[in-house]
Amino acid sequence: MEKEPVITVRNLSKQFGLFTAVDNISFDVNKGEIFGFLGANGAGKTTAMRMLCGLSLPSSGTARVAGYDVYRENEWIKRKIGYMSQRFSLYEDLTIRENIRFYAGIYGLSDIQIREKTRMLVEKLHLEGKEKTLVRELPLGWKQKIAFSIAIVHDPAIVFLDEPTAGVDPITRREFWSLIYEASARGITIFVTTHYMDEAEYCNRVSIMVDGRIEALDTPAALMKIHQAGSMDEVFLQLARKAVRAGD
């Protein structure tokens, strides 16, 4: 894989009053990479991710996402990224097709593009004949897969996934990860937060945040070697135990 950074973060910090939520973090994410962004609750993951998505301005430091500056060009960043939250963020009272139309529509896709995307998405997820089903009536695993497919419906450079598998069973999680691999193979960079350490092992590289700082950043194999651990679970526990800040 060619090393072409799509996210460049240097000395990024965010303060809320006296509280430093994100403390001087630096890292790069390369094109097409699956980047795991780990950390206990309250470690500052969400704040960092919000800054990269253009939802929140950093207090200091620099960051470029998809080639755009997070301070001045966040409107451009928004066009280049996709986002999926842990709550799957589909409208339960709309049908599958209406959800696709809406999210594709607000990213400015034309009617022809939307029709084509809907057809492809329905085919890929084997939803033929279900297009007019209300999302409310679907099982959780389906909703999650549809939400992910919708998050990348506009072919973004990077997709941010905020705990996308929370509360989903292991089989569905595995199916979900195969969708992630497929997107990554198409050149979409995946930036994912998770609490499941088996998922961390699926990532190309992971960073572990503790108390607003990045304590470790490497491939899962290298991290396990450095910390002489048998699994990512052990690595995480070793690092997260040092935290002084209480999770929420």
Binding site: C53, G54, L55, E75, K78, R79, I81, G82, Y83, M84, S85, Q86, R87, F88, S89, L90, Y91, Y103, I106, Y107, G108, A151, F160
Partner: peptide
């Protein structure tokens, strides 16, 4: 949680 997703959109 849909508000977040809309806010990330352009």
């Amino acid at each position: 949680g849909t508000m977040e997703v809309i806010l990330v959109s352009p």
